[in-house]
């Protein structure tokens, strides 16, 4: 049930990302909302859930929008897994921690992307790409992650309420 909801959310997100986001892009940069969903899920539910969300999101994006399969899946699984390490010890109600996590992980993800897909082709001018693509994207993604986290937090609380009754844990 939980994974079906996650998959539907991710498909919906992919459709929006590839169509509507074209119209809300600022200085040619679109926010990466897929990574926000992965980070929010990992932060709210832990390592395993984060990695599975990363797997689904990565596969969807690889299938539909990549010249070769595997890169997004690989990175998103790792993002989900490592972000899940921040599951314990943080309040889920505050919005500051997921915002900081999104900024940090999006920056790392874009850097890895730059190294493997751009730097190895011989474009060594990292400062330019940092200024024109990476930093704007990180800032934009962090801003919209506030909204997306609130929505996912609501969905997650509904799901947890349901699971509580179905498993009779309490």
């Amino acid at each position: 049930m939980r994974y079906i909801i996650i998959t539907i959310t991710l498909i919906f997100n992919l459709i929006l990302q590839s169509t509507l986001f074209e119209y809300i892009s600022i200085i040619d940069v679109k926010p990466n909302s897929a990574i926000v969903i992965i980070i929010s899920m990992a932060f709210m539910r832990g390592k395993t859930e984060g990695a599975v969300t990363g797997l689904i999101a990565g596969l969807l994006q690889d299938c539909f929008f990549a010249p070769y399969i595997g890169f997004y899946t690989f990175c998103y699984i790792l993002v989900g897994y490592f972000c899940g390490m921040f599951f314990r010890g943080f309040y889920k109600e505050t919005i500051i921690t997921p915002l900081l996590l999104t900024a940090a992980f999006d920056l790392i993800f874009e850097f890895v992307y730059y190294v493997f897909n751009i730097l190895l082709k011989g474009y060594v001018d990292f400062g330019f790409f940092l200024k024109s693509v990476i930093l704007p994207e990180v800032v934009y993604t962090t801003l919209i992650s506030a909204i997306i986290y609130k929505i996912l937090y609501y969905i997650n609380s509904l799901l947890e309420e349901r699971e509580k009754f179905s498993q009779k844990l309490f």
């Binding site: 590839s18 986001f21 994006q61 929008f65 897909n117």
Partner: peptide
Amino acid sequence: IIAKDPGNWYNLFT
């Protein structure tokens, strides 16, 4: 054109 690559690096569209 109905969709464009969600990333900011590639220039693919559908």
